[in-house]
């Protein structure tokens, strides 16, 4: 039997490092490192005090040794970057094996679904939640 909530998948290019999931996770098991750099795609205004910035994700970790599988991070992510995935349940012999980084979390994308049941975007697909540049 497959478990639709076996693990959590991250679509890295959808994540804006907004920190909401990190701050709302009741178990403090998500941690993010990110930096800001000028956003080349943003409109440029001559009177802007500083250039429009965008956050770039450097690392994203979920420590599954603490995770409650509560799904709060998935439900609240405003950019649709986190998904439930059917991939094998997280397991490991030591704690370090169950701390997943970007690559491990993205590896769960193929069997990940949005909350409405449609398939999650794959690694080579563009961000799902952000407005398209017009």
């Amino acid at each position: 039997m497959t478990n639709p909530h076996a693990t959590i998948a991250l679509h890295p290019s959808s994540c804006t490092s907004c920190m909401l999931c990190v701050r709302e996770c009741p178990d403090w098991c998500i941690s993010i490192e990110a930096h800001a750099e000028p956003d080349p795609d943003a409109p440029q205004y001559s009177n802007a005090r500083r250039p429009a910035m965008k956050n770039v994700l450097d690392s994203f970790q979920i420590d599954f040794s603490h995770c409650l599988w509560c799904g709060i991070c998935i439900e609240l992510c405003p950019f649709d970057a986190l998904f439930w995935s059917e991939k094998d349940m997280v397991s490991g012999k030591s704690r370090s094996e169950v701390v997943y980084g970007i690559d491990e979390l993205a590896a769960s994308l193929p069997s990940a679904k949005r909350l409405d049941g449609t398939p999650a975007p794959q690694l080579d697909e563009p961000p799902s939640g952000r407005r398209k540049k017009s």
Partner: peptide, 9 residues
Amino acid sequence: PGAVEPDAQ
């Protein structure tokens, strides 16, 4: 972990 602020400025 939520104390991280990606854009320090």
